[in-house]
Structure formats: C-alpha cells, structure tokens
Nucleic acid binder design. Structure first.
Lengths: 213, 213
DNA sequence: TAGATTGTTAATCGATTAACAATC
DNA sequence: TAGATTGTTAATCGATTAACAATC
C-alpha cells in the first residue's frame, strides 16, 4: 500500500529504507517469520525507537506483543520504495562501468526492468552485452518517443553528461541515475537526480583513515 | 595542515567535505581566485552559515572583508581529506566493475595510488588491464606482507566478500572500499569500511520518483 | 576609511531517543 | 491472563541557520 500518512518524509528516513529492505529480505530468505523492533535494531546497529518512528511515517505494520511479520513488512517496504511499479530504465554509455551494470547489477531485484542500452561508439553499436543489443545514441530521442521510460542511467563520459541529461529530460524520464561524477542540471523539469559519486566516497574513506592516524 | 581543532567532526560535515573539494577544484581550474562563503553557498545550494560553520571545525581559512582564496582553501581541504598522504590501494576482483575502476577511475585525483590488482580467475591472472598485471588472489597474503597497503577495494562476488575482508584485515589495511553490496564484518580490527551500495541508491531514486507520482 | 565578510555565539529547527499507555 | 511489544507523545540531542562583533 502507498504511503498512508502524508507529510514530508525526511531524507534521513528515505536513506534508511533501502537498508531496512535489504535486512528484512535477508531474514525473509532465511525463513525467519517475525522480528521485534528491538531485535531488528540490534541487528542493524540502530535503536528500536528509530525503527518504530521511521515506520510510523508510512503506517502501522506491527502488532503489540508480537512485533513485525517479516514477509509482510518486507512487502510493505518494497511497496513504499516503489519496487512494484516495475519502472523501466535505459542505460546510456556502454563502456566499462555501463557493462559492469549490464552484466552484474540485478535490476530485477530492485523492481526495475532494463529495457535498452545505448552508446556512441560505432564499434559497440550492434554488439550484444549481456543480452542487450547496444543501440546508437543517435536513436535515443526516437526510442524515448516510442517507449515510455522511467529512468535514464548515465554512464557516459563527463563531457557528455549534460547533453545526455537534456535528451533524457526531453524524452520524459522521471529520474536520472547519475554515475558521471558531475553535477547535472535538470532545471525546473522536476526530474529527480540520484548521483553515485565514487570519488566522494573514496575521499570520505581517506578522511576517516587519516583521522585515526 | 592537519585538523587544528580536535573535537569530533560530525558525519554530516565529513560527507560535505568532498563536495567542497570538488566545487573548489572546479573554480580553481577555471582560474577564479577568491570566493565568499555566500557565493560558494549559492553555487552549491547551501547556506553561507553552514560553510563557515563546517570550515570552523578545522581552522580559520578566510579573511574578513575578502572571503577565501580558492587555491588555498582547496589545498586546505585536500589536506583535511588526507589527499596528501598518497595512500596506496589494491583492487580485489578484476571483473567488470573492477575493470571499470581500473580503466576509468582517476585514483590520482583523490590522492590515491593503485598498486596492484588481483583476481581468482586463471583466465585473467597474468593479463594486463590498464597497465596492471592481474595477480593471483593466492598471492594476496604474501603481497600484503611485503607491501604496506592503505586500502583494499572489494569488487569481488558477494560470496567472497567476507573472506577477502578477513585477508585484508590480517594484511594490515586501514580501510576497505566495499562495492559488494554486502555488509562486511571487520570485528574490532579498527579497519574503516566505506560501502558503495548501488541498490540502495537506485531504491532511493525509486522512492523519490514514486513519491512524486 | 567604509564596505564586506569572516569566525563564533546564540537561536531555531529537525532528528533521535526515551517513556509509556494501549493492546495483542 | 501476564508478558511483550507496538505506535506515539514528550524529552533530548545534534545540526543548521541567524545574528553580530571583530577586522581585513
């Protein structure tokens, strides 16, 4: 079910949701049936209060004296995360990182369906990667006209990031998953950008190990 | 110069530091000489207050009536981030994602030096990727004994994540950059783990686009 | 000098934790 | 039933923003 209570959900909560899902999914796969907020909390290293407070943004999923049914709560969180919308995604840039995603990333596990891959390199166009026929980036606009697409994945070179962003916006995507390490500008399009900044992550690690020395 | 004031720096501040660096580096490359906290703030979409508050954790880098010298502040933040320690890193798992990092990630830009790559696949061992001779994972322990290594990069399959973690810890690394999408356990070793969870990021995007619908 | 802008202290805002009545 | 555990309200803690004296 969708968000029962409206009222803006804080970013802190949103960032914890995928981890709740991941943890519950692991228990679910292990065949565990129920869990209390305090057991879940100690398995995740957070407080039971925080879990109950977080969940209360979306509804009431537990039962006094019992806790939470793992299968149910896992399903509720999947719903909250939008995993049942079966969003479609296309990948722009079939270089090394793009290929890594095509070959290794389990899109279906997050509810996404990867529907096409594009590249500008004539040597790649027409080849097959992990079952995907790589299309010419020249055909992107046409593709988006005929295939409603939820998310564009940007694994192109930095220099192409903004240009590709513009095409994705014009093509009506709802979100962009950005791996280019560049801040892209979506103007007032309302398109949501989620960036994975490898270098920010490595620099945070660098800071943390320096701090300890 | 190192952290002038001690007193725990909050995680929120740590996570902003790489972005400060990235932004200042861009201005620096554009040849801009000075910037005020308010100009920097509006270019980053945060308040001037926050920038001044954040920087005050580490020292005094500005000048009243002038603002900040970009080259100086960029250098100070690089220092704070530990970019001048020239940490060494080795990569475990030379599959698609490992190759993407070997070929595309500019380690030098973050102050790191990649010193070796390992894999378990006999077909890969001995081949060269982006100038790196892929070593047998069997030789990892020996390598770590003879080459002091700051960070291990985990791009191995999930199933190998914990085992490789144990070897890295025994080999004396200070940090692990974890791409396996599994929570790894470093016990009381004091080793710092920084994880890049692709699926958490995509699920957050999924939530955000669902919320808008 | 006068204007601009810092670093820091105080005020506000938001997020986390604690407490507890409700109830399975 | 008695014990366990929820959802929620209140208290605490921490992070962000505002204000301003100091000063370049």
């Amino acid at each position: 079910m969708q968000q029962v209570k409206k009222g803006k959900v804080s970013n802190a909560v949103i960032r914890r949701l995928p981890r709740y899902y991941r943890t519950l999914d692991a228990f679910y796969r292990d065949g565990i049936v129920r869990i209390s907020s305090s057991a879940l909390g100690s398995s995740m290293g957070i407080t039971a209060s925080q879990i109950r407070q977080d969940l209360s943004c979306f509804g009431e999923f537990g039962q006094q004296g019992y806790g939470y049914n793992i299968a149910d709560l896992r399903r509720e969180i999947a719903d909250i995360l939008g995993m049942n919308h079966h969003y479609s995604a296309i990948l722009l840039g079939s270089g090394n990182l793009g290929r890594a995603l095509l070959r290794n990333f389990r899109f279906a596990k997050t509810g996404f369906t990867l529907t096409a891959a594009f590249d500008a390199d004539p040597a790649l166009i027409g080849t097959s990667i992990s079952g995907f026929n790589v299309r010419s980036i020249e055909t992107l606009d046409e593709y988006l006209k005929t295939h409603s697409t939820s998310v564009g994945i940007l694994t192109v070179p930095k220099s192409e990031a903004q240009n590709m962003t513009n095409h994705l916006i014009a093509g009506g995507v709802k979100g962009i998953w950005n791996f280019t390490n560049v801040e892209i500008d979506v103007g007032d399009s309302g398109v949501t950008v989620e960036s994975v900044h490898f270098s920010d992550s490595l620099l945070a690690l660098s800071y943390l190990i320096s701090e300890k020395a």
